[in-house]
């Protein structure tokens, strides 16, 4: 079975996100002053072949921990569905 993983990778809360800060300034220049706390991360979509959703999730989790995210500065979340 092929599973589709949607992965969100975000900078950890205590890490300064200068990109988010710069984009917030841009939004405020558009007079959207009600917007605050802009944080910018990555979204990764990938397919994985596995016998079960648990197995697929375990593979994706290992991919996140070993390469896709750096846990010193980032955190990740995974959503799985069948492709």
């Amino acid at each position: 079975m092929t599973y589709l993983a949607e992965i969100d990778i975000m900078p950890q809360k205590e890490i300064l996100d200068p990109q988010g800060k710069a984009v917030k300034l841009g939004l405020h220049n558009l007079n959207m002053d009600s917007i605050d706390n802009v944080r910018i991360g990555k979204h990764i979509r990938l397919e994985v072949d596995a016998a079960s959703e648990d197995e697929a999730r375990a593979t994706v989790d290992a991919a996140c921990r070993q390469l896709l995210a750096n846990l010193i500065m980032e955190e990740y979340s995974i959503t799985m569905k069948t492709a």
Partner: peptide, 16 residues
């Protein structure tokens, strides 16, 4: 740093 051979990590310059 990515290989964790030294501690820490290098982030985007704060100036962008």
């Amino acid at each position: 740093a990515e290989a964790q051979l030294v501690p820490g990590v290098l982030l985007r310059n704060t100036s962008q």
